[in-house]
Amino acid sequence: MTSHDLVIEAEGLVRRFGRTTALQGVDLSVARGTVLGLLGPNGAGKTTAVRILATLLTADAGYARVCGYDVATHAQQVRQSIGLTGQYASVDEDLTGRQNLVMIARLLDMGGAQSRRRAAELLEWFDLADAADRTAKTYSGGMRRRLDLAASLVGRPEVIFLDEPTTGLDPGKREDMWDVIRSLVADGSTVLLTTQYLDEADALADEITVIDHGRVIAHDTPEGLKRVVGGQTLEVRPSDPSRLEETAAILGAVATAGVVEQPRNGVLSVPVAGDDALPATVARLASAGIGVTELSLHLPSLDEVFFTLTGRTAAHDDTTQHAEVA
């Protein structure tokens, strides 16, 4: 990859807020037409990094370029090319959905008719046409997110920053949002997405940068990262606790490594690989006549990723800082 193809490039970004250092030298790079997942817990510095790249904040040290323009010296040019969807939906609640979008279009120097057309097109696309003339105050959380994303797409930006686009959405709406993001990428947009969920980064990103306490602690493809932190885990709870042994034997046969663990009382878990593990397990359990009350397949949680990468639990600033002191 030549640097020519990098739409977002940042080196050594540092940002302090009073005594706290939100970013302590972060490097990021995103190639044209790809999605970078910026993965990290609350307070890791994800939002700070996005705000610097979107010209809302200045860095205390380091530099960043978006579409070849320095964010510090050519902010106005950067703003021509970006769309930002914040963690908190940045729409005007007293305006209707349509008025919000028309206002943005007018601010982007579109004519009146063109603005109304663009607004209608986006409202339609984001399934907000029926609610278009209601004030955003009356929208549900999911609708507000969609309106917010629509607002950031009014000018057809090349680069889209999505700061935790699915936090707080229920699972169905989350998948809808994923579909929207995928179609934006299919159209050629470059996306920087922050998230607290490995499965979200895995589902959408071409590359994942993991940050913690304002530092990059890993950068890899989703596959590479999963090789490091472990793949999927299958969890089973047999409805009859006395058949735990038999269940363990079946799981041992489908597992990648033969270690069957019991994370909680009455629940067995094994690492598995590939999509066949789940149907294979279901088939074997059925033929053995073992009923289950719980059966799930999941990627490591952020906590587990962090435990693997850093040797300590991800979390909440206070506890980790104490851990560092100790």
């Binding site: 040019q77 970006i82 914040g86 729409v91």
Partner: peptide
């Protein structure tokens, strides 16, 4: 509110 973030991210 977020709306001012929106304004600041626009080329105006």
């Amino acid at each position: 509110k977020g709306i001012f973030d929106r304004f600041r991210s626009l080329p105006i």
